[in-house]
């Protein structure tokens, strides 16, 4: 699947295209399919997202997973500071990153 990611303009936070807007959580990401370029063009022109691009991903039983390690780290946070991750209380949050 093709998933879309970028950064929130004001906070710089990593965001994912959820079909109607931009979510902080990769599990909300949807398959943009062959509409990826169109969605990116519209969203960036409207300045609703910053520095956005399409990546390969996979929908697993546990949720959407970016294909590349860099994007998986973006989805969760620095592997060396899981206390700063999106879900610091979830000890298993980063198990699929590496």
């Amino acid at each position: 699947m093709k998933i879309l990611t970028g950064n929130d303009l004001k906070s710089g936070a990593v965001v994912w295209w959820d079909g109607s807007g931009w979510s902080l959580h990769v599990e909300d990401a949807v398959d943009a399919g062959d509409q990826a370029d169109t969605i990116l063009a519209v969203e960036q022109a409207a300045q609703r997202v910053n520095a956005a691009y399409a990546i390969d991903g996979e929908r697993t039983a546990d949720g959407v997973r970016p294909a590349h390690i860099k994007e998986r780290i973006r989805a969760v946070g620095p592997t060396v500071r899981m206390d700063l991750a999106l879900k610091p209380a979830d000890a298993d949050a980063g198990n699929w990153v590496i």
Partner: peptide, 8 residues
């Protein structure tokens, strides 16, 4: 000010 993996 850079834009890095998780934030500015």
């Amino acid at each position: 000010l850079y834009l890095q993996l998780h934030a500015y």
